[in-house]
Design a protein around this nucleic acid. Structure first.
Lengths: 254, 254
DNA sequence: ATAATAGTGTCTCTCAGACACTATACC
DNA sequence: GGTATAGTGTCTGAGAGACACTATTAT
């Protein structure tokens, strides 16, 4: 018999079962959003500089507290609208971070979301709200595959950005998640404009996975699955033979 | 330009950004645990009858409120110990359910966990705590693959069990999750005793996936990956040629 | 013409499914 | 011997990687 069960004394059980946390102070609940995009073969995320303690001067994911009657998804949308100026973005719940000491002020449980957006929109958001100390950080993933672990961010010149709280952990979970979902979900498409070449799509996949992909089999796989439809148009001014442009296939056609 | 950005008036932004939910009443945070096992080719989960409104008389996942300074994982462990009598069980966070009306009393955000345990332990837990109105429910999954959607529970004779709150949704997410993780994780092993035949392991996989698997390629795949090691012993009293028994390979050997 | 990438065709390797066959227990 | 499952060997088909080759545009 392994140690998976043991007998508890009546005292222990009474104490533990009688503990009703709802009668005690409640933790705060917040939502943090990992807003991801792919540019120049790298993953980038939106960060905001903190102006208050704790973590003053450090860079944090955009976030906000959950209203008493506000659904979690609504909080994520509200954060994107108010702090970044984006609406109608692909958003999905990631993981809930609830360690005791992650925020030194008080107990804050953070429900993390990730959102995917094409780089042009993200760059515009940063420009428009530059005064708000928003910036993009390039993700530096120190592990291969889906190993997992914290992920840091660096600026355009490669200098590390100090991240607030446990946000490096959150970035790590986000990268691991989208790497895992890339195969069987349509994640790549959220990161591209309406029309794109298969090369664009492959570069997005390579940036997410952090490794090179076989050009030929990537093309075959994407086309065979019927996920994309040729638009009949071609890119221009590319300095070489222009590629056919594709768009997403209607999902109902799957 | 699609409708992914729009201009917000200063008034809108001031209102939305100024809303600091931390100054308002906080939602309660609870943990619910989907305790899963495989028996007779089906997935079973542990349910407790509710003795109070709302949902009086219905069947609910074991759960509890999160203490103010209690990590989420610790709440999940505490629930398993106090309500089921199990400790040292494989447990992983599943998803956080935060719709506004999921508990009619007040706002309750539930961080769902799933746990995997071999059937003998689960049956013993139900027997020992029978007076506590614990029982096992057999999952009835109405969708194939990883489609997703609510999952109901039925009793031994196939009669539906009325589930409380949104617990059918939680069961659905749990099934979808373990189906997705089965391929690349060692989920099946958590549901088996120390020594098991490859047939046992295959039946566990089939119960999780809800479909039959090819006997030969399953054997090859498991053995080729080196996940299991032959013990040199064989099962007895099986009414036919007795199979070799295997155990998990040491994980560091991978 | 050269550079650079697009796009096609083919070979091979791996792996899962299918199937045939032998092995070994209990009845 | 009959039955049921364990376990092995082989064929086939799908899909990914590798690679050779042609196509098309900008310079």
């Amino acid at each position: 018999m392994n140690e998976k069960t043991r007998d508890w004394t009546d005292d222990e059980l009474a104490f533990l079962a009688g503990y009703d946390a709802s009668r005690y102070p409640r933790p705060s609940v917040a939502v943090d959003v990992v807003l991801l995009s792919v540019r120049d073969g790298d993953l980038w995320t939106l960060l905001g500089r903190r102006h208050e303690q704790p973590g003053k001067g450090r860079w944090a994911l955009p976030g906000g507290f959950v209203g008493f009657d506000e659904p979690l998804d609504a909080t994520a949308s509200r954060v994107l609208v108010t702090k970044v100026g984006l609406s109608d973005v692909f958003t999905e719940q990631l993981y809930t971070f609830g360690s005791a000491g992650r925020d030194p002020r008080t107990r804050v449980i953070s429900v993390a979301y990730y959102a995917l957006v094409e780089p042009a929109l993200l760059e515009r958001a940063v420009e428009v709200r530059h005064e708000a100390d928003l910036r993009l950080g390039r993700l530096a993933v120190p592990w291969p595959g889906e190993t997992g672990g914290p992920v840091g961010a660096v600026d355009e010149r490669g200098a590390p950005l100090q991240l607030a709280f446990d946000h490096a952990e959150i970035l790590g979970v986000a990268v691991k998640r989208i790497r895992g979902k890339l195969d069987y979900a349509t994640i790549g498409f959220e990161l591209l404009p309406t029309a794109f070449s298969l090369r664009d799509l492959r570069l997005v996949h390579e940036a997410i996975l952090g490794r090179a992909l076989n050009k030929d089999s990537f093309r075959r796989r994407i086309l065979d699955r019927g996920l994309v439809v040729a638009t009949g148009e071609r890119a221009t001014d590319v300095g070489h033979r222009p590629p056919e442009l594709y768009r997403f296939a209607d999902r109902s056609a799957t």
